[in-house]
């Protein structure tokens, strides 16, 4: 019984998941990139997530909306186990990434987080140069070849639509950039490790409308190569850019469907009340 065979067993057992019913419809039979089964999450004694079932499709943009405190950010952080950093939390249930439960024993967290990258609500560049920020993810994997680093930095900054603005000042501290530019550095930094999934927690909430528009354009571009999951309190943003939308309320995933359905013809009354602005 070695690692390979254990993994194969687990994979085979899970590769045809029973597609859970959500909103009365089966999820498309294409195997989702991420499949969540019966996820519960607790901060100490408070239950923040209840019984979540969801499938997130590859190369699509999935958005989660809901009033503040409904659990959407908590859910996002479950997908790359960033919640493990907070003491006193526990969870139950399974989260399958490419068929493997990331909450099972023996998962190497740093590998997981390279596969599932994250961009935070408030940009958090390191107090280092732009170049060092973007290349950080490569350096920690032991990649020191200057050519690779430079090529990656250029490529990801271009992807993040920031290259032209900073190409002459890569050695400058990232902290000297504007808020919108800093956020794009963080995006480039996350892209540099070539994740397969990109989690974005309110990626443009702290930004002005012009920067927001740039970031939204960027996200739609990224869809080609990445699976994107966004949390946003801005419904219009979700409606604009996402393919699928999930509505969280009081720790439950109330409804999950194609974005157009959620906003024009929601099944659940709570969803309807929220998207029509009756509360939230």
């Amino acid at each position: 019984m070695n690692a390979e065979s254990i993994m194969r067993e687990e994979t085979e057992a899970n590769i045809e998941p029973k597609t859970p019913e959500i909103s009365g419809k089966k999820i498309e039979s294409v195997t989702p990139k991420i499949l969540v089964e019966k996820l519960d999450f607790y901060y100490g004694k408070t239950q923040a997530l209840k019984d979540i079932y969801i499938g997130i499709q590859e190369n699509q943009i999935t958005a989660f909306i809901g009033p503040s405190g409904c659990g959407k950010s908590t859910f996002l952080r479950c997908l790359n186990r960033m919640n493990d950093l907070i003491p006193g939390t526990r969870s139950s249930g399974k989260v399958f990434l490419d068929g493997i439960d990331i909450y099972s024993r023996g998962i190497e967290l740093s590998e997981l987080r390279r596969k599932v990258g994250m961009v935070f609500q408030k940009s958090n560049p390191f107090p280092k140069s732009i170049f060092e920020n973007v290349s950080y993810g490569l350096r920690i994997q032991g990649i020191g070849d200057q050519n690779i680093l430079e090529e990656t930095v250029e490529r990801t900054l271009k992807d993040a639509a920031l290259w032209d603005e900073v190409k002459d000042k890569l050695d400058q501290s990232a902290l000297k950039l504007s808020g919108g530019q800093q956020q794009r550095v963080c995006i480039a930094r996350a892209l540099a490790v070539e994740p397969e999934v990109l989690l974005m927690d309110e990626p443009a909430s702290a930004l002005d409308p012009i920067s927001t528009a740039k970031i939204e354009e960027l996200i739609q571009d990224l869809k080609k190569n990445y699976t994107i999951v966004i949390v946003t309190h801005n419904m219009q943003q979700a409606a604009r850019i996402s393919d699928y939308t999930g509505f969280f309320f009081l720790g439950e995933l109330v409804e999950f469907d194609q974005t157009s359905k959620i906003f024009t013809n929601p099944r659940d009354k709570r969803t309807e009340d929220y998207v029509t602005g009756r509360f939230g």
């Binding site: 987080r113 990258g117 935070f120 958090n124 950080y136 993810g137 996350a190």
Partner: peptide, 20 residues
């Protein structure tokens, strides 16, 4: 936040301490 950013990029605890 700086520590979180480092972890989210796949760094281990000691790497985060040493580099950031």
């Amino acid at each position: 936040e700086i520590r979180e950013a480092s972890f989210a990029l796949g760094a281990t605890k000691w790497q985060t301490i040493r580099r950031v």
